[in-house]
Design a binder for these strands. Structure first.
Length: 481
RNA sequence: GGGGCUAUCGUUCAGCGGCUAGGACGACGGGUUUUCAGCCCGUAGACCGGGGUUCGAUUCCCCGUAGCCCUACCA
């Protein structure tokens, strides 16, 4: 009869979500799903200055793409203002909070002085002991005010982090933070505890940058007479130089990875392994397997470094695991965008595209690469690889070789890999050149390139007409020198 | 300046008092093959430093160092 687990992802709409944001969402989602609980989405839009149009859409797009479905929400804090002011009033009434009328100038001066003197920073509690009369007078004058939490000046506040164990802070080192701003909006601290309580969140799973703020939250819960949820602070994700993830490490915006052609399965697997493990050496899992195994006690407590190469490896893995028709469905839009395939391809065009994709699948690491990998299957060859030209097409035997192969293939009634291979090898033998030479020369003739799928498979898929035309063209080119 | 979190191969995840310190990515070498890729096999590569505790520390404690986070009317 234990309360069902409820977690949430609570991003602020200040831009496109970061890799780290989504990883946090992922872990919160995994925890909820593992325990058959609920996962909610809450938009923390309490800072009107930093609001960025479109970020909520990007956040939802990222979650949906990864498969992080939410059971409730999205909730918007900006629509719940009365809840926060009520809580603030209650805290003032119970003596846990007070109004502060200090101007930003006074606060700046105070901070400068503290810095100059090397004394600990923090609000000097100037307004903490204002009498009721003074407060009334100031309110009457219309002076803007904020509500600050009245920190106990002694004692220790501690909590048990689900990942790090017991963490404690001395209250006297904590200052009277602002919980309600002068514009009537709450700060994160107030809003999040009011909402987490109201939404019956059982586990607050968030980034480790929140650890230092947690004693404030614990005290806020106590002030409200509420029990606080379990806190779990996830390790941060850093760049390869152990510095904050930034553009220099590649993309930091999550949606960029969608656009670059990563697969959600790969990203899902990669991200969960960044800070979590099943406790042994395995690291390739399906989403279902991860959901069934995931728990907070296996989350590491130290920073993880974002390794783009590993992500790429996971992506290649995911691509190779995809059933062909699914992979084709993912590649087709890229081919269409490149103009290699029409917007409304015929049945046979589609079938052709699919067999082409099948040949290149194992070389594919990123979806958009399919375009350059397969271009020659769809378009005529505009030029031959220059190294290949020098090495193979410049040989005097190339033209007769290509012509012979062409005629042999044309005579074929059974245009399949084994017969194609037999004919190419026979042609080589007839002219007394090595099979390797015949194969490389032919590859260059039909694809213009030096590397690619197996030659015979490639010829079969290209079809007799294209192949013959290309062999003849290459023979002419070779003859002309 | 103050406070907090963290510290195993280049990276990642294991190890939770006794191990030849393991797996993966990457690197390097080999095999398969017509090339590349893939696949298979192999090689190199790590316990931040100093004190304790203990018969015994990578593992527990303390100090130092380093990185990161907080120290906003931002989240």
């Amino acid at each position: 009869m234990n309360k069902s687990v409820r977690t949430r992802f609570a991003p602020s709409p200040t831009g496109s979500p970061h890799i780290g944001n989504i990883r946090t969402a992922l872990f919160a989602w995994l925890y909820a799903r593992h325990h058959n609980g609920q996962f909610l989405l809450r938009i923390e839009d309490t800072d009107r200055n930093r609001f960025v149009e479109g970020s909520v859409e990007q956040i939802m797009r990222a979650c949906q793409w990864l498969g992080l479905d939410w059971d409730e929400g999205p909730f918007y804090q900006s629509e719940r203002l009365p809840l926060y002011t009520q809580a603030a009033d209650q805290l003032i009434a119970s003596g846990h909070a007070y109004k502060c009328f200090c101007s930003s100038e006074r606060l700046d001066a105070m901070r400068q002085k503290q810095e100059a003197e090397g004394t600990p920073s923090g609000y000097d509690r100037h307004c903490r002991n204002l009498s009721a009369d003074e407060v009334a007078k100031l309110e009457e004058s219309g002076a803007p005010c904020v509500v600050r939490f009245a920190m106990p000046d002694e004692g220790v506040t501690s909590f048990t982090d689900a990942i790090r164990g017991e963490v404690s802070f001395e209250n006297r080192l904590l200052d009277d933070f602002v919980m309600l701003k002068s514009d009537g909006y709450p700060t994160y601290h107030l809003a999040s505890i009011v909402d987490d309580h109201d939404m019956e969140i059982t586990h607050v799973i968030r980034g480790e940058e929140w650890i230092s703020s947690t004693p404030r939250h614990v005290l806020l819960y106590e002030g409200m007479g509420w029990q606080h949820p379990v806190f779990a602070h996830l390790p941060i994700i850093l760049g390869s130089d152990r510095k904050k993830l930034s553009k220099r490490h590649g993309s930091v915006q999550f949606v960029d990875y969608i656009d670059q052609g990563y697969l959600p399965e790969a990203m899902f697997n990669f991200l969960t392994m960044l800070g979590w493990s099943p406790g042994d050496d395995r690291e390739e899992f399906s989403t279902e397997e991860i959901v069934s195994m995931f728990d907070l006690d296996k989350v590491t407590d130290h920073a993880a470094i974002f390794d783009g190469q590993k992500l790429l490896w996971y992506n290649g893995l995911a691509i190779r695991k995809k059933p062909l028709h699914e992979l084709a469905a993912l590649c087709v839009p890229h081919l269409q965008a490149a103009g290699l395939l029409s917007a409304e391809p015929s049945e046979s065009d589609l079938a052709y595209a699919q067999s082409v994709i099948a040949l290149e699948a194992e070389r594919l690491k990123l979806l958009p690469e399919i375009v350059e990998l397969t271009r020659f299957f769809f378009e005529e060859i505009s030029e031959y690889d220059s190294k290949g030209t020098k090495k193979w097409l410049s040989k005097p035997e190339s033209a007769p070789l290509l012509k012979l192969i062409s005629s042999k293939l044309q005579a074929l009634t059974d245009f399949t890999v084994p017969s194609i291979e037999a004919e190419v090898r026979a042609a080589a033998e007839e002219l007394g050149v090595g099979a390797g030479q015949a194969i490389h020369t032919t590859r260059l003739a039909v694809s213009g390139r030096l590397v690619g799928p197996g030659l015979f498979e490639m010829i079969e898929v290209l079809g007799i007409e294209r192949v013959v035309a290309r062999l003849e063209k290459a023979a002419e080119f070779a003859q002309a020198g």
